[in-house]
């Protein structure tokens, strides 16, 4: 396929790129080990300071609540959405109406998050001024986060379902499962990896987001990214901020790697523990 010489050249290019991808993150970790005031060398001083920083912990708590709640809701809505699109959308339908679901799903993905955030800001402001509901705060952030997480879950689930033999659904009905039972005993177990993947992606996206949170946040609702951003805006980068960043980077990397290896392990046990299938010759 790829000639050996070209392979070397590609490696020579790729490893430095990988290094470059992680250099900024590594620097954050490096600077987080800055010495305590009037001391020399490296230390965990910044982490000690962080440990006693109530505001940072409040922000962390809010971020986690936001991520978990929004990812849970988005997983429920997105799973149903992906399932419906895969199973019940007519394949030969033409026209605007048939395209509408795809258009709706791709809007949150393609829309610049700034426009997303400002739209929400104005909308919630308007709704609040008219009805008194939806004051800016955790609830508005939650709504916004669910909105941008739904498509990712839906696409993950859709991808998994559409890769399946479509006769499976009919087979379940044939074997006495009604719509609900088919969903519970066939669809949910079969797409379970996609649902878990979608949920984790939702959490990741929620924690990754700054812009949309920033515009939908209320005065009292400070998430971790907002906390970091305003800290940098106020007094520049400090070792404590670096410590906080390091912890966030580390957590995400650990979770991602764990998920990767666990799901790979599960794939392996599915395929590898048993001897490979042998050709049967009539009756064994």
């Amino acid at each position: 396929m790829i000639p050996r010489k070209l392979g070397y050249a590609l490696s020579g290019f790729a490893w430095p790129v990988y290094a470059l991808l992680y250099t900024p993150l590594a620097l954050v970790a490096y600077y987080s080990l800055a010495p305590a005031p009037n001391m020399a060398g490296h230390s965990f001083h910044a982490y000690h300071v962080l440990l006693h920083d109530g505001a940072a912990f409040a922000a962390l708590r809010l971020s986690l609540i936001l991520a978990l709640c929004s990812a849970t809701s988005a997983t429920a809505l997105g799973t149903l959405l992906g399932y419906g699109l895969c199973r019940f959308r007519s394949r030969n339908a033409r026209g605007v109406l048939a395209q509408l679901p795809s258009l709706i799903i791709y809007t949150p993905i393609i829309m610049p998050s700034l426009v997303f955030g400002i739209s929400e800001l104005i909308f919630f402001n308007f709704v609040h001024s008219v009805t008194g509901f939806l004051a800016a705060g955790l609830q508005t952030m939650l709504i916004a986060h669910i909105t941008f997480e739904i498509p990712y879950v839906a696409l993950t689930v859709f991808g998994r379902l559409s890769g399946l033999d479509q006769n499976l659904f009919e087979a379940s009905h044939d074997l006495y499962a009604d719509g609900l039972k088919s969903f519970l005993y066939l669809v949910i177990p079969v797409v379970q990896p996609a649902i878990i993947g979608g949920f984790l992606l939702g959490i990741t996206l929620s924690i990754d987001d700054f812009t949309i949170s920033f515009f939908t946040a209320g005065p009292g609702s400070v998430t971790l990214p907002i906390y970091i951003y305003s800290a940098i805006a106020r007094k520049g980068i400090s070792p404590e901020i670096n410590a906080l960043g390091t912890l966030m980077i580390g957590t995400i990397i650990v979770i991602a790697l764990l998920h990767f290896f666990i799901s790979r392990q599960r794939e392996r046990t599915r395929q590898g523990v048993f001897p490979p299938p042998q050709q049967t010759k009539g009756a064994v």
Partner: peptide
Amino acid sequence: RLWTTSGPGLVWIMLFLLIPSAGL
């Protein structure tokens, strides 16, 4: 069936993204 399964998600996005951005 499409609207009972996909409906909630689609309406959610319409209500909380399409309408707000049209408003903007």
